[in-house]
Computed example of a mutant assay.
Amino acid sequence: MPDEAKRPAATARPTIKDVAAVAGVGFKTVARVVNGEPGVKEATAERVRKAIDQLGFRRNDGARLLREGRRTSSIGLILEDVSDPFYSQLSRAVEEVARAHGSLLFTGSSAEDASRERELALALCARRVDGLIVVPTAADHGYLAPEVAAGTSVVTVDRPVAGLDVDTVLCDNAGGSRTGVEHLLRQGHRRIGYLGDSENIFTAAERLHGYRGAMADARCPVQDTWVSMGPPDLVHIRLALERMLVGRWPVTALMCGNNRTTVAVLRELAALDRHPALVGFDDFELADLLSVPVTVVAQDPAQMGRTAAELLFRRIEGDRGQSQRITMPTRLLPRGSGEQPA
């Protein structure tokens, strides 16, 4: 074993050269041992392995794969909010598909911030992930065009993008919202309020469209006070419900545009001691265990995630066919809150 004088100074990340110095061998000898190549005597190989253990050296697979022009066996996933139950289920499904394909998954949240989405996407591309799955926030995704042209596969999920020819997996947002409203109409309700997320979000706009379409087909004019679009914070929800539930023509039923809005509405209704019929878009944990179980229009985020991931790996593996736009169905789960008659 070389004496201590030959031992390199400690570094944050030991290199092959550091291992070579400690083992007293050449750079190429270390490379052969690290890569499992023949041509190294066992005694020498053992000395190299001891130096690797001593220094805590780890092979940089990413750099090696890039030098060899091979894939990095990693993909990126950019969500709106990884803590949202909808996105956590979607993320888990993507991770399972990635693992089945021998890939690592890197995940980040855009927080509905276009600049943060761009920053995350370009950072992942700079690390040469093989592909990206994105829940789009930005209005302009031209920044991804050079990455796509350079060979990075991209799939969008939950929302489409304009100006980028990539595969997209969506939910039938308008159809699902229409289903929920039609269910309330069948219970005799004609004054139905709608609470949704910010209208500049694709899914929110589509669900509002479904609500308005169902009400128009039933010839039920919608009062301005019956519709509230915005973030699902309690103050906003409280003011919206106060407008909807008072006056000469209060609503008798509510359609909520997403699970966070539904939960906020339930909290406020409990405080107001009001019990209109209610249907929520998106299922949520314990919805079926409340004193009045919540009727929901359910998506399948896990299936959306699996579908998006399979499309991505198909592209990574060389599929150059036309881009696909897949729309997943929803299903109504009647549990009690949406079955209360007018």
Score class of each variant (00 low, 15 high):
Ala308Met: 13
Phe106Pro: 00
Glu4Met: 14
Ala45Leu: 09
Ala205Gly: 11
Leu241Trp: 01
Val294Arg: 03
Met304Leu: 14
Glu119Asn: 12
His183Pro: 05
Ala302Met: 08
Glu37Ser: 10
Arg71Cys: 06
Val169Trp: 06
Phe313Gly: 02
Ala309Thr: 03
Thr225Ser: 15
Val292Cys: 05
Val246Ile: 06
Leu208Phe: 06
Arg306Lys: 15
Thr156Ser: 13
Ala23Met: 11
Ala51Trp: 01
Ile75Gly: 06
Gly36Pro: 10
Ser115Val: 09
Ala216Met: 09
Ala162Cys: 12
Tyr194Asn: 03
Ser198Ala: 10
Thr262Cys: 06
Ala123Met: 14
Ser73Pro: 02
Pro8Phe: 02
Pro250Glu: 07
Asp3Thr: 04
Ala111Met: 11
Cys125Ser: 11
Ala253Leu: 12
Gly247Ile: 11
Leu77His: 05
Glu37Thr: 07
Ile316Asp: 05
Ala150Pro: 04
Leu144Thr: 11
Ala43Leu: 05
Gln324Ser: 07
Arg67Glu: 08
Gly76Glu: 08
Met304Glu: 06
Gly196Asn: 09
Ser74Thr: 07
Ala12Met: 09
Ile16Pro: 06
Glu119Pro: 05
Arg47Cys: 02
Glu242Lys: 14
Leu272Cys: 13
Asp167Tyr: 01
Gly188Val: 11
Arg335Val: 14
Gly247Tyr: 13
Leu124Val: 13
Ser291Lys: 12
Leu132Cys: 10
Arg127Tyr: 08
Thr44His: 03
Lys6Pro: 09
